[in-house]
């Protein structure tokens, strides 16, 4: 089950989308999300959805992986559909007992479910095609202006990098500690809730002790390598916008235009 969730995972590749400037990718993902909510009828939503779908084709990421990015959330999507189907008034298609399904209801549920699906595809595409480190870097640079109002942008980004670096190490460590305690007869699979929580103590305490030790040693190692905070720091990898980023924004602008045109031409579905 857990391994079915692909959201947030990076899939290395060399496509145009992979090579785009991560800052542009973040901005476009945000912009796209806004446009998705501006679109107020089904044609407009479909028009907006073309943008991540075209990007998905160019990213060379397989169809299956894309589908899996929203599959775990299908129950949630279904719930939204049902809710809108029964509660939106208008011209009935089917009507029996207390249940009334209307054209408008059908329209609104279609919009809602497509919005969620497109949003998940867009978000996943960002993480599929951008390594966590580039993502962190791009966020740091995009948030740069916030430094002026004393937001510790560099520190936040550094913390994110270190967290990303140490997650695999700590997972491995947890497994090791669990095995060591199991070897002393610790029982983690049985008992009621209280017993199970208590069984976690022999794992959590060593994990915290070791995490603090690691933090200490890491701080020394960073200091030894001349780290004194964000002041005066440069970066090896310079982020540069290139032609492909220009083309991507052009595509986005076209889709914005299409959405607005559809909105005007077909009118909002939310008037009931």
């Amino acid at each position: 089950m857990l391994r079915d969730i692909t959201l947030g995972q990076y899939i290395p590749g060399d496509s145009v989308v992979h090579r785009m400037d991560p800052r542009m990718k973040i901005l476009l993902t945000l912009g796209f999300t806004v446009i998705l909510f501006v679109a107020n009828n089904i044609s407009a939503v479909v028009a907006a959805g073309m943008f991540p779908l075209v990007a998905a084709v160019f990213s060379h990421i397989s169809y299956n992986v894309i589908v899996r990015s929203f599959k775990p959330l299908l129950p949630f999507i279904l719930f939204t559909v049902i809710l809108n189907l029964f509660y939106v008034g208008g011209d009935p298609i089917v009507e029996f007992w207390v249940i009334k399904i209307t054209w408008q209801g059908l329209h609104v549920s279609a919009i809602m479910s497509l919005r969620i699906i497109f949003m998940l595809i867009g978000g996943s595409l960002l993480t599929f095609t951008t390594s966590p480190i580039l993502l962190t870097d791009a966020i740091e640079r995009l948030m740069g202006p916030l430094k002026k109002i004393r937001v510790p942008v560099h520190e936040i980004a550094m913390m994110m990098t270190i967290a990303l670096r140490f997650i695999p190490t700590l997972i491995e460590e947890t497994n090791k500690i669990m095995n060591a305690q199991k070897a002393r007869g610790a029982d983690m699979e049985q008992g009621n809730l209280v017993q199970r929580i208590r069984a976690l103590i022999p794992i959590l305490i060593p994990l915290f002790v070791s995490a603090f030790k690691r933090a200490d040693e890491l701080a020394l190692a960073m200091e030894s390598r001349c780290y004194t905070g964000g002041e005066g720091r440069t970066r090896m990898k310079v982020m540069k916008m290139s032609a492909r980023d220009g083309w991507a924004s052009l595509c986005f602008l076209v889709s914005v235009g299409l959405v607005i045109a559809c909105n005007i031409r077909f009118g909002s579905a939310f008037q009931y």
């Binding site: 670096r165 890491l218 720091r233």
Partner: peptide, 25 residues
Amino acid sequence: PDNQIVATTVEEDTAFALENLGVEP
């Protein structure tokens, strides 16, 4: 060895000290 590598890739880690020193990219 685990507690002195800061970055999530080998080359980014090697660059760490130079970035701190403000060397040109």
